[in-house]
Design a protein around this nucleic acid. Structure first.
Lengths: 352, 352
DNA sequence: TTGTAAGCGTTATCAC
DNA sequence: GTGATAACGCTTACAA
């Protein structure tokens, strides 16, 4: 049905190889034939078959993205579209397409990933999270497929990664609350299996001990990165005999849930309770009051991850590379540290 | 490097065709050889090359998703991840993967789409929006590739689609405001090129004329589905000599922006101003006050679109099919019609 | 500068 | 039941 390279060749009175060379912009081809073949291609409305091309070139110009199987958590968190936006931006520019691995219902993540890679449909992988024990990470290093992790491996593994300094960010944010006079600070975190959760928790606890505040396990709750978890976590914290006066949530979505809980119970933020989040998702500035959070530059994480991956695919790097993306504390009103002067300079004040 | 079907065949002492049949679960194959081949496949850690398979079968078991070129607008609106969630859920179950078309920076949408389809990398397409004149829609019908539109074609085209009754939904929502006593109601809409915008605007205007309220063009502003547009749109409405007492935003993201503008100017919602949105994104219930909106069942749109597409790909349907997904008004507090009684029954009250 | 021919790793069509 | 063999549409030595 479709017109193929042979048809074009025949029509142009050349061989298929010549057509192929024209497509590939091969240098040693006469301007005349090049023009003629191009014309015929247009006339016949020829489009190369990418599948056939991939088969012989053993590369697909496609980047794979593995969506963790905890699929709802992922899609409901605005982190995902934002990092995807960064990834597509760079991929698009380089002529790469993106493959979302989702097939094979019932198989576990490892098998899904192995199948995706071994089926040769992608040239490289971007992994969107890392866990303390992470078979996916082990698999990609074992299969030696170009890959980049957004996050950091818990154990040392030969894989490239892009990350924030999550410990430092959480430390700075907690310290900010301490400096504002808070002495009892709660923490609502994501799943303890996720490395990012541990790093942020560590920063929180580091800041407390630096200030000679004791770490009370009662003040720490954790679950998935879901709004409901923030909600119920906050309920628990507020039910404590000795209530915290400030709460660090390790994700804006958690902070939203926390604010909702506090609001329903009649607490006023930030007067009765300071709440801060993490990530600076687009809606963080729209909450009421606007949320103090950490801008981790999600988009930039996606961008740099893709650059790193493309470098690796194109063989221009040897060995894994790492990169830390800057973060900024974004002080808005939910922490109670709103300085009207800064409002004159812009909509929000960024420190660090 | 990788082990292929020939290697397996040799090792198992059979022909490649036999191995292929084992993979395909061909019925006429002896249990004995089947078991032996399976064993060898495991031992050699063989994984079929999907590319080679696609080439000969002329199908990829991949669904294409075209991201409109106004990429930011898309990613920043939670509609996207939510519909993607529905799509992946069904695709995954059917063993299909998802391809996000993003490549070919600089080419326009039409060329991108044509290239994607003609390159044979996808078996079918899901289109995420429709415009009043939409070359993409024309292209997919012309190329006769299985496709489903989420939305509806503006002009009659032989394409399957899934949609809400957007006119009715906007009508009902506007009517709801009218019944609450509002006589001057503003409208903040998405781009006029989008069919969904027109349908919702139509519902709004229908409701007004049914109530013998005149349609004032001054009261209607439109732009992209971006928070900023809601913000500036609201500013404009509030600057009118005769201010509206209620505003219908044709998207929750617009409504968020509208609420932000009203908040900054010191209006209290819903006391001074009622604001309602559209779509019921996850964060709508978290706004302050919680947002009255229309639940259009985004996830379900994705699910049904994919079902329809798979039916079409698998050839089990002839001719385009259409389907309307139910919507529900979700009455929260931003419209001022909060009935404390309903709070006892659940977190929100749904009518219709 | 261009053509010939041998793959790339599968599946499908015949035979036997 | 199983095995040759010919596609699928393209790229790339190797020749010319």
């Amino acid at each position: 049905m479709g017109v193929n390279i042979k048809d074009v060749a025949m029509q142009a009175g050349v061989s298929p190889s010549t057509v192929s060379r024209v497509i590939a912009n091969h240098p040693r081809i006469s301007q005349e034939t090049r023009d003629r073949v191009r014309l015929i291609m247009k006339e016949m409305d020829y489009h190369p078959n990418a599948i056939a091309r991939s088969l012989v070139k053993r590369s697909s110009e496609v980047i794979g993205l593995l969506i963790p199987s905890t699929i709802e958590q992922f899609y409901l968190n605005p982190f995902f579209p934002e990092v995807l936006r960064g990834i597509t931006q760079v991929a698009q520019h380089a002529g790469y397409d993106i493959f979302l691995s989702t097939a094979l219902h019932g198989l576990n993540d490892v098998d899904r990933l192995e199948k995706l890679i071994r089926s040769k449909r992608v040239d490289g992988m971007i992994l969107l999270t890392s866990r303390t024990t992470d078979p996916l990470l082990e698999l990609v290093t074992e299969l030696r497929i170009p890959s980049v992790l957004i996050g950091r491996p818990f154990n040392s593994l030969p894989i490239s990664w892009i990350n924030n300094d999550n410990r430092l960010a959480a430390h700075d944010m907690t310290q900010h609350l301490i400096r504002m006079g808070h002495r009892r600070i709660g923490y609502i975190g994501g799943s303890q299996e996720l490395v990012v959760s541990l790093d942020r928790l560590r920063g929180y606890s580091d800041a407390l001990s630096e200030a000679d505040l004791k770490l009370d396990p009662q003040c720490i709750v954790s679950g998935e990165f879901l709004e409901d978890v923030g909600y119920s976590g906050m309920m628990r914290l507020l039910a404590l005999a000795e209530r915290p006066t400030a709460v660090v949530a390790s994700d804006d979505v958690l902070a939203f849930g926390a604010m909702r809980a506090a609001g329903e119970l009649g607490y006023s933020i930030p007067d009765d309770l300071a709440i801060v989040g993490f990530n600076d998702i687009p809606l963080a500035k729209l909450s009421n009051p606007p949320m103090t959070t950490v801008n981790v530059n999600i988009y930039e994480l996606g961008v740099q991850a893709t650059h790193l991956l493309l470098d690796e695919i194109q063989g221009s790097v040897r060995g894994p590379k790492h990169q830390i993306i800057e973060h900024q504390l974004v002080i808005r009103r939910s922490c109670g540290a709103w300085d009207p002067l800064t409002q004159l300079q812009g909509e929000e004040s960024k420190s660090k």
